[in-house]
Design a protein around this nucleic acid. Structure first.
Length: 421
RNA sequence: GGAGAGAUGGCAGAGUGGUCGAAUGCGGUGGUCUUGAAAACCAUUGUGCAGCAAUGUACCGGGGGUUCGAAUCCCUCUCUCUCCGCCA
């Protein structure tokens, strides 16, 4: 969520920028600032009253010590009166704070000025396109046929033991999957990221910290018995490492492989065909915590890094800057990576790299100390490097020929084979 | 799963219901000394909110209660540790 002092300082600019997302914040912000004003006033009154009460208590203590019991008892009556007043002021204060937070969480992050206006993904801006769309052999197939033909994935078996959206990888399919995970992690390590293997279940506080809770509750699998949630992305456990932390050295660079679990309620049709949309999938994530002045340099660095992976995999891809309407709620600027998957003639999103500026950090209480020793909010960023299933699909579809499926060179030392026959 | 113990500042660890935001040690920062370093000595060192500031206020795992007054007493939740059982 946004930080109130920053809203106060840059009110006009923020309202203008939020229009890029087609979000009219003017009324909400006015209400918010009014509520914050009365919160301050209430606190002032309350503090004064509490000060009075504290003084009185100290006085009563002294009177008792001196044995002046009667005088002390008189003062007690006054103290009791003050207590009634403080109680009602405290309630008032708590109510105001609650309203303020409730309003605050309704305001999405302020888009970076460079974010293009727009409503849907059709308005996203193509930053660059790399690689040529491959010409396929006659009778080229989509991956959901190739995975069966070459015995790489058994969707039916997944249905049997769990349900739709839970594929079972097998033989060279399983090995290719493992190769991709290792390759991605090694690439990230070489770029200076530290590897983590976090829990796949998180508590409620973590869900709130990165913004999945309370609003997007239905998108996560919830284990009610223990009140834990299956992670929808490694972003949740990893970013929450830094909840309530005061950072000493920038940047912090983390990478983690985890399975990701998503309920995807309401998805259906051909978008969910094969590997295109799953309830469980593998992903290698990168997360950075950075000084506010450097976060956009870092964002560019992350985009370059993801690009270099796709270059090595020899997949045609494009980088898009998301328009206001397509931008995630908590992001200030997002670049999406889409890979061309020839067998189904489709561009598939395989990575989303975002700068959240201080939006997540404010929820997480993730801070650093500036030169004057004042605590300030850090910037947080993350991206996929990369999401596996769609890469898997594109590799099969683009590299198919009469004799089998070719494995890109860079992966061969990880797979231990160069073709799937 | 059964029995017990505990949760205090970056860490370790005191704390009789009143001057406790909290002893002490370690660590951190600044300084003295030194050619430099170490050692020693001196000083300083939590966070939020309000305020230009002085300062005020809140916070001793979370929530509630008793009391004029709670780190300290009571209730409750969560978590951690030890022992026993089970187990990869």
């Amino acid at each position: 969520m946004l930080h109130i002092p920053i809203i106060r300082q840059n009110k006009k600019e923020i309202i203008e920028l939020l229009k890029i997302r087609n979000f009219d914040a003017s009324k909400l912000i006015d209400t918010l600032l009014e509520q914050d004003d009365s919160r301050k006033e209430t606190q002032k009154e309350l503090d004064e009253l509490l000060a009075k009460s504290n003084q009185l208590s100290r006085k009563i203590g002294e009177l008792y010590k001196r044995g002046e019991v009667e005088k002390a008892n008189q003062q007690k009556t006054t103290s009791a009166e003050i207590k009634v007043q403080t109680k009602s002021l405290q309630d008032q204060y708590a109510a105001l704070e609650k309203e303020i937070t409730a309003n605050l969480v309704q305001i999405p992050n302020v888009p970076h000025p460079s974010v293009p206006k727009g409503n849907t993904d059709a308005d996203n801006k193509t930053i660059k396109e790399v690689g040529d769309v491959p010409t396929l052999i006659d009778g080229a197939k989509p991956h959901w046929e190739l995975t069966t033909d070459y015995n790489l994935i058994d969707f039916g078996l997944g249905n049997k033991i769990t349900g739709a959206g839970f594929p079972v990888y097998k033989d060279k399919g399983a090995r290719l999957q493992r190769a991709l995970i290792n390759y991605f992690l090694d690439k990230n390590l070489a770029a200076g990221y530290t590897e983590y293997l976090p829990p796949h279940l998180v508590n409620e506080a973590s869900g709130f910290g990165t913004g999945q809770l309370p609003d997007k509750e239905g998108q996560m699998y919830h284990i009610t018995e223990d009140n834990l949630y299956l992670i929808p992305t490694a972003e949740v456990p990893v970013t929450n490492f830094f909840r309530d932390v005061i950072v000493k050295d920038f940047p912090i660079k983390c990478t983690a492989y985890t399975p990701c679990f998503r309920r995807e309620a309401g998805s259906y049709g051909k978008d969910v065909r094969g590997l295109n949309r799953l309830h469980q999938f593998d992903k290698v994530e990168i997360v950075q915590i950075q000084h506010p002045e450097k976060s956009y340099d870092t964002l560019n660095e992350m985009v370059k890094h993801v690009s270099s992976i796709l270059d090595e995999l020899e997949l045609p891809y494009k980088v898009l800057q998301l328009c206001g309407g397509d931008l995630g709620f908590t992001s200030a600027l997002t670049y999406d990576f889409e890979v061309y998957s020839a067998g189904q003639d489709k561009w598939l999103e395989v990575s989303s790299v975002s700068n959240f500026e201080s939006y997540q950090a404010n929820r997480l209480k993730l801070r650093y100390k500036d030169e004057d020793g004042k605590t300030k909010l850090c910037h947080s960023l993350n991206g996929s490097a990369l999401a596996l299933p769609r890469i898997f699909a594109a590799l099969l579809e683009n590299n198919q020929n009469e004799s089998g499926i070719k494995i890109p060179k860079v992966l061969q030392k990880y797979t231990g084979f160069d073709t799937i026959e």
